[in-house]
Simulated scan of single mutants.
Amino acid sequence: MNDKTYSKIFQKLFLAGLLLFLAGCAAREPEVRTVRVEVPVPVPCRAPVVPVPAWATDSLKKTDSLELKVRALLAERRQRIGYERLLVAAVAACQ
């Protein structure tokens, strides 16, 4: 046999193998799988807006008595503590 004969035989065998390979792939149904992926999703915070109170010392004047100024400062301290607690609660609601 010569080289042309080997070449034709090789081509026929190659085509037959290729057809068998493609037929094997076509006969098989694709495998369908459901995969569950858990990914954290950022959610915007919907905490209520904490209004700034009217501070007790805002209405003080320079001519007011020392006793009135001290009482206003003590009242504002209580206001500030309450305001800070509301802010902490709003931040905790977002976490």
Rank of each mutant, 00 (worst) to 15 (best):
V41Y: 07
A93N: 07
G17H: 01
L66E: 15
L13D: 13
P44D: 12
A47L: 00
P42G: 04
A89R: 11
L87P: 01
V70I: 15
F21I: 03
Y6G: 11
A27N: 05
A56V: 01
I9E: 14
V91P: 00
P51A: 14
V43G: 05
S59C: 00
E76Y: 04
E31K: 09
S7M: 10
I9N: 12
R46I: 01
G24R: 05
T5E: 15
E76P: 01
C94I: 01
A89F: 02
R33Y: 06
V49Q: 09
L22E: 01
K8H: 08
A72W: 04
E76W: 02
A16V: 12
V52C: 03
K69E: 03
I9S: 10
K8M: 10
K61M: 10
L18V: 09
A90T: 03
E67W: 06
V41E: 14
K61I: 00
A90D: 02
V70F: 06
Q11S: 09
I9Q: 12
E76K: 05
S65M: 03
R36N: 12
K62V: 11
Q79W: 03
A27W: 09
F10V: 13
I81L: 15
L19V: 13
R28T: 14
V49F: 07
E31W: 06
T34Q: 14
Q95L: 12
T5N: 09
V50G: 01
K61G: 10
A75R: 13
E38A: 08
K12R: 08
P44W: 07
